[in-house]
Amino acid sequence: MKFIQYNLLILVLLSCSEQIKSNKKIQDEVMSAPGSQTNISKSDTLIVNNNIIIKNKADLIGNWVGWFEPDMGNQNNDLAVDDQIYWGRENKISLSIEDIEGENVKGHSVVAGNYRPFSGTISDSDTEYMITLKEPGDDKYDGSFQISMKKNQKIISGKWKAYKGIEINKRKFNLTKKLLKYNPNQLLEYSREYVDWTKLNTEKFREEYENEVFEYISTTFSSATESIYSINASNRKLSKKDLENLNKGDLLIIRNTIYARHGFSFKNRPLRIFFDAQEWYIPVNIDIKSNLTEIEKENIQLLLKYEKNAVEYYDSFGRG
């Protein structure tokens, strides 16, 4: 009998410990990236010429960046949650042409944190270059590109078709050549708001109006405040005072803006959609650890501490 009582007591105690600390984890793609990815060549170390207008084959070498949009005819794959989020499933793509030797083209693409090498062939007419590129095919999202590059133009356009029957298996794109210039002073611009719809809290509301009862469901999302537009974690050492009043969404964005400045391509959807909407953002890298400055490394450590605290203790019974 006593044994049962003790067990019950322990059970009660254990169930309550959740209230003084929640065991949620913070997300960090950059720091927890698998080590095997580190030896993949970095696209911003390419030998690139700065000609943005295509005159000859050499001008094709470089990073071509733009929207990678679904091309599914009438089929609708859009994502809409509540009134706050609308996403047409477009991602920013970076198509890096590394080398052209005769007819052969080599390079890689980066979309949504996915680095894929490709190879293909180039043909040439009076007015344009035509390129066909193939990804290896051992990834679920591999496919082939058909690209047309008109001479004396800035834009290359084309289509992509997946090998496998994935949800969106046809995409189109118009890309321009862009060079990643790391700018530690780059602040976020007012564009799309950060909303993490994967962590929404649903609340039911009841209202009585002229003897009629209305019930509706409203969702609140984890989001960020105005402070993300003014706090820069790349150009100065942040202090306790800068961070102590920020919510977890703010801290997450401020930290990930460091990665975005280095051209990191995000796998995480809410972050990707948020940063893709930033005009200056060029997602060309999947590993940026070695590019981080000392200030940034220190700030990341501090931000992670505050994020951990915000996630575990913000709405729990305790000081935090």
Binding site: N245, L246, N247, D315
Partner: peptide, 13 residues
């Protein structure tokens, strides 16, 4: 602190 965090979601400090 818990009540304010849950019902008003004010910034932590």
């Amino acid at each position: 602190k818990w009540i304010i965090a849950v019902f008003w979601q004010l910034p932590p400090m």
